[in-house]
Every structure is written in structure tokens, then in C-alpha cells.
Amino acid sequence: MSNIELSDSHHVKQTTSSNDPVGEFSVEFWGVRGLIPTPSTNTSRYGGNTACVEMRVAGKRLIFDGGTGLRILGRSWLKLNGPLIAHLFFTNSQSNRIQGFPFFSPAFVGENCFHIYGTAASNGASIKQSLCDQMLQPHFPYPLQVMQADLQFNNLTSGSKVTLDDVTIETALINQNQRSAGYRVSWNNYSVAYMTDLYQGANEIDLGCIRELIEGVDLLIANATYTPPTAHNHESPDLLWKTALNLADGAGVKRLVISHHHPDDHDDFLDSVQTEVKNAFTQALLAREGLILSVVGGN
């Protein structure tokens, strides 16, 4: 039973798309960059779009974060037949997590339905308010109300659990300062954790929430530890990923994917980080746009 706070809009029955065979559990990366989009010839191999990850599990479509990668994902969905039902989970309301939402084409199609989830921002704004505000003048020419799809907003609190048939999404605040949520998606004894606001020096409360969500997961998606912009450099690349790797190692995580690459991290540098990470943990890799991983079977 879910303890989310549902919006006043009517419920839409969850259906399984004929394009997604029941039993599939896969992860696709549509945006892997943190902070700000970085399109350039030096980021073409890993990608320059900000955070967006799609999970297809038991015929359901789950999206985590709505950075500029969400625009690319949306365009790919326009090729699908029939009404779309999907669930969008936001880790926080910072610009790099929500900036693709105004350009999410399927949200402008009336027959589609999107369930949108998020925690309150540091200023108390709900996820609905945060998404609405970025689409107001002078930031954007059209308000959220021009989207014709059925948008159902759900306010999460730390410890919330969303149940979609036999798929469970658990939530916890993993970064109190940023009011950032982490997620664990479970189905049929398989699980994926999405943790993209890890930071050095996390307090015991945050660490406890993180460990609980990542314990024994088949796949952990985490950020390379962020540092203040003035301190970012390429002299000690191991400092960027050791927090995630140490947490994964201590929690019995089977595979680790490091995402949310810093805007200054060009392809050649990320190649060097990839080598270091693989040497430390053979079941770890860096995320690239277009990367697809199967949770069932481990490919």
C-alpha cells in the first residue's frame, strides 16, 4: 500500500504496453551529465545531456529525472502506437533534473498519462510547483497548462513506497542539504537503486538511508561525488568515484554504474576514470548516452 499523497486528478488504470514484453527489466541512459548540458566534440562519446534514465520493468515505463535527456527520450516515444502511461520520478528540483520537462513531447499529446513524483524542494515547493515555475514567463514562453496529457502529481516524503502491481519503488532522502531523494526499484527478486546526490562527508542519517536502499541491489546507479566548482580538477580522479564504490562494496551491490559526469569531464578524461574504476571493481562502468543494461541476466 502506497503512502504517497495523491493529487486531486482522477486515477488512470495501469496497463501494460504491447511494445514491452512482461518480465523485462532493463535500464537505458538518455542523459548522463550533471549541472549543465555540455554538447561538444569532446563529449560526444559519453554524451552531453543532463540526467535522464529510463527503466522498463514488467511492462511499465519508469523515468528517473527530467534533464535534457528527457527531450530525446520523448522524441523516441512519439514513434510508439497507442496511449502512453509512464511514471516520472525526480530526485530533486534543481534545474539540471527538471530542465527537459518543458520539451517532453509526449506530455503535449492528450491521450497520454504521466504520473509525476517528487519530494518538496529546499524552499518547500512541491514538484508540481517547481515544474510550473520554470515554465512561467520570462523563463519559458508557454505555461505547464498547455500540456494536454493527463498529468498526475504525487508528493513523496522520505520513506514513501509506490506500488505498481508487482513493481515497488522505495524512496528516502539521501541528501538533507539538497533535499534529494534516492530510489530503489524492485520486481521479482531483482532490484535497481538510483542514487545521484552522493557527497563526501555525508552524515549518519543520510548514510543510513543510502545503505538501506542499495543493500544487495543488482544494479546501483550513482553519481561521481560532486565537489565545489572551484575545487574541481583532474589531478585526483579517484576522489570522484570512491564514495560510490565504497558504498557499493559495503552493501553487496552486484553492478555499479557511475553517472552525472561533471561538465568539465571530457571523453578522454572519462576514459581514464573508466580504467581506474574497472581496476578497482570489475563490475563497474561509466554511463554513456544510449547505454542499455539488462537487469535480468546481467547483460
Rank of each mutant, 00 (worst) to 15 (best):
S2C: 09
S7G: 15
S9N: 14
T15A: 12
T16P: 01
T16D: 10
D20I: 09
E24M: 12
F25H: 15
S26G: 07
V27Q: 04
F29M: 13
W30H: 15
V32S: 08
R33W: 07
L35A: 09
I36V: 13
I36R: 15
P37L: 00
P37I: 01
P37F: 03
P39K: 05
S40H: 13
T41R: 13
T43I: 01
G47F: 09
G48C: 01
A51W: 05
V53T: 15
V53M: 10
V53W: 00
L62F: 06
G66E: 08
G67C: 06
G67E: 12
T68V: 04
G69W: 10
R71F: 10
R71K: 15
R75F: 08
W77V: 01
W77C: 03
N81K: 15
L84E: 13
A86S: 14
L88K: 04
S93I: 02
Q94T: 11
N96C: 08
R97V: 07
R97D: 13
Q99Y: 03
G110C: 01
E111F: 02
N112F: 04
T119P: 09
A120H: 12
N123H: 08
G124V: 01
A125N: 12
A125L: 05
S126T: 15
Q137R: 12
P138Y: 06
H139Y: 13
P141V: 01
Q152W: 05
F153C: 04
L156P: 12
L156M: 15
T163G: 03
L164M: 11
D166A: 11
E170F: 04
V185D: 03
S191W: 09
A193R: 00
T196L: 00
L198T: 05
Q200S: 11
L207H: 03
L220C: 01
I221C: 00
T227N: 08
P229H: 02
H234N: 12
L245V: 11
N246R: 11
G252F: 03
G252R: 04
G252E: 04
K254C: 03
R255C: 08
D265Y: 13
D267W: 06
D267Y: 08
L270F: 07
S272R: 14
S272V: 00
Q274E: 14
V277E: 05
Q283G: 03
L285E: 14
G290L: 06
S294V: 00
G297T: 07
G298P: 03
